[in-house]
C-alpha cells in the first residue's frame, strides 16, 4: 500500500478509536448504573411543566438564508486554498485573478447586506 493510502488508513483508524472510546465509556457505565424506570422520567423537559405539542417546534427561516450564504463563501474558500499555496509561482497574474474573484464574491456579500439579509430581526 502506498504511503498516501496508509496515512488515510490511519485517519480511519483514529475515527474507529473515537467510536470505540465512546462505546467503551457508555458500555462500561451500563454495567454500573442503576435502572429504575418511572414513566415521569421519560417526559421531555420543558421548565418543569407538561410539554405542549409535539416537541418539534417551528424555527426561524433566517437560519436557512445564513446557510445559503455560507455555502457561497465556503466554496470560495475551497478555491482560495490551492491559490494560496502556489501564490509565489503565479506572481502578479495570480494576484490579479484572485482579486477579481474575491471582488465578485464581495459583491454578493454587499448585495445580501443591502437586501437586509444580514440583519437579524
Amino acid at each position: 500500500m502506498s504511503d498516501f493510502l496508509r496515512s488515510y488508513l490511519t485517519v480511519g483508524l483514529f475515527g474507529a478509536l473515537a467510536v470505540g472510546l465512546v462505546g467503551a465509556f457508555i458500555g462500561l457505565s451500563s454495567l454500573v448504573r442503576p435502572t429504575r424506570p418511572q414513566q415521569q422520567k421519560y417526559i421531555n423537559y420543558e421548565s418543569g411543566v407538561d410539554p405542549v405539542g409535539t416537541g418539534w417546534a417551528q424555527a426561524n427561516i433566517r437560519y436557512y438564508i445564513f446557510a445559503l450564504l455560507f455555502v457561497m463563501f465556503d466554496v470560495e474558500a475551497v478555491f482560495i486554498f490551492p491559490w494560496a499555496t502556489r501564490l509565489e509561482a503565479y506572481g502578479l497574474f495570480g494576484l490579479i485573478e484572485m482579486f477579481i474573484f474575491i471582488f465578485i464574491l464581495l459583491l454578493g456579500l454587499l448585495y445580501a447586506w443591502r437586501k437586509g439579509v444580514l440583519r437579524w430581526i
Binding site: A18, V22, G23, I26, V32, R36, Y42, N44, Y45
Partner: peptide, 28 residues
C-alpha cells in the same frame, strides 16, 4: 458512571444515541 441512562420517550432513539459518537469522531 453511576448516573441512570434516561432517554426521553419521544426521542428518536438511534439518532439520539449516535450524536455523541459523531462529535467525538470529529475531535479525534
Amino acid at each position: 458512571f453511576q448516573k441512570e441512562d434516561v432517554i426521553p420517550e419521544r426521542a428518536d432513539r438511534p439518532v439520539f444515541k449516535m450524536a455523541p459518537f459523531v462529535v467525538l469522531v470529529s475531535t479525534f
